[in-house]
Amino acid sequence: MEGDIAQLGQFIGAGLAGIGSGAAAIGVGHVAGNYLAGALRNPSAAASQTATLFIGIAFAEALGIFSFLVALLLMFAV
C-alpha cells in the first residue's frame, strides 16, 4: 500500500515536471518572436543574428528538456 502512495507521488511529480516543457515552449516562443520583431524592424541585420537566435532557442529549450528528463526519471528510473 505504501508503494502505491510512492508511485502516486512519482506520477504527480512527473506531471508537474511536464509543466516545465510548456514553460520552455513559452520561452522559445519569446526568443523566436522577439527575433522576428527585430528582424522586421531591421531586416539587414537579421541574417547576421541567426546563429544567436539558434543559441538562444537552444538555451531556452534545454531547460524544458531538463524538466522532461526529470519527468522521465520519475516515471521510469526512480
Binding site: 508511485q7 506520477f11 522521465l72 526519471l73 521510469f76 528510473a77 526512480v78
Partner: peptide, 23 residues
C-alpha cells in the same frame, strides 16, 4: 495504462537495473 506502464517500468528496472536504458 498508467498502471501497466508502472508495471513495465518496474519490470524494466528489474531487468536492466535501471528503468531508463540511458542510465
Amino acid at each position: 495504462s498508467v498502471e501497466h506502464a508502472a508495471d513495465a517500468a518496474a519490470h524494466g528496472a528489474e531487468a536492466s537495473g535501471a528503468g531508463m536504458p540511458q542510465l
